[in-house]
Design a protein around this nucleic acid. Structure first.
Lengths: 150, 150
DNA sequence: TTTAAAATAGTGAATATTCATATTTTTCTT
DNA sequence: AAGAAAAATATGAATATTCACTATTTTAAA
């Protein structure tokens, strides 16, 4: 017998954005602990991962790719710069922009975390979904994304 | 000719959590504007949507379902309570817990936003993916989620 | 049953994020 | 080429979130 309070057809359980958020939160949670063990927030990890892939990037490129608002990223970079993980350097091609790159220590940490992220993904995603559905998921997400920021 | 700096195989573009984050951010962005037009953050919207579905819920249920940390939710509830969108009421079954429910105004707003969310989802997801892939996406996400919090 | 442990929310200071705006450099217009 | 507009970042105050801890009530154990 349905509780009158919950007599709704249940909007959330069929709402794509909600399902994505739940799945993402669930999978992220366990990786979050891995990052936290290195003293990094998820946002900081994402920035390091971007720099790992890119080598160096301007603040705004990095903001776009790491899905962080510019001002937030500027503050964040300040913090991880103080910790010796990244360097700032004004670009010569365009003297407005600032290039960010990993220090040696940052690069080591990033490489280490990327390896852990891969292992974690295998365990938390691929093993759970199987190869086919993992591929399919990527395909659908890419279709949804359209023009990728990467 | 690949830039030596970007000689990596590109970790991120095949990393499930990243693809989910990008897709989610992309689809969310446009809905964010809808919520913001009503003076709501995404987190606030999610709480209202949960209450819309549930009728009422304790703070911790709500935290679990809306994917917000408990203390954050407590603060958030305080704010939307001050705005007259929700009420708090100590539970009689368990006098530790506090039941949160929508006010009439909150319920109107939530219903309104749910309708807009459905329309937005159609436009930003279903139209883009087609019925089959949308279904498949839901199926995969549910598989990934396992025990749903809803 | 009396105590110990767990569950539930709340609190406030520390920290992080957002928002509006300033600064500098580049690009566009005429 | 001069001036206006746009782009890129930084800044700091306002706001929100996190973290560690408290108070209360319930559950479990001895």
């Amino acid at each position: 017998m349905p509780d009158p309070d919950t007599a709704h057809p249940g909007f959330l359980e069929n709402y794509t954005l909600f399902l994505m958020a739940v799945a993402s939160a669930q999978v992220s949670r366990s990786f979050h602990e891995i990052a936290a063990a290195q003293g990094l927030s998820v946002a900081e990890w994402r920035v390091l991962a971007c720099l790992h892939d890119l080598g160096s990037a301007s603040v705004s490129e990095l903001a776009r790719l790491s899905l962080l608002e510019q001002s937030r990223l500027t503050h964040l970079i300040g913090r991880i710069q103080n910790r010796g993980l990244v360097l700032r350097q004004r670009s010569n091609r365009n003297r407005r922009s600032v290039l960010v790159r990993l220090t040696d220590e940052g690069a080591r940490l990033a490489a280490d975390l990327v390896a852990q992220a891969k292992a974690h993904e295998r365990q938390a995603v691929t093993d759970k979904l199987g190869r086919a559905d993992t591929e399919k998921l990527h395909e659908i997400l890419r279709k949804l994304i359209g023009h990728p920021p990467v």
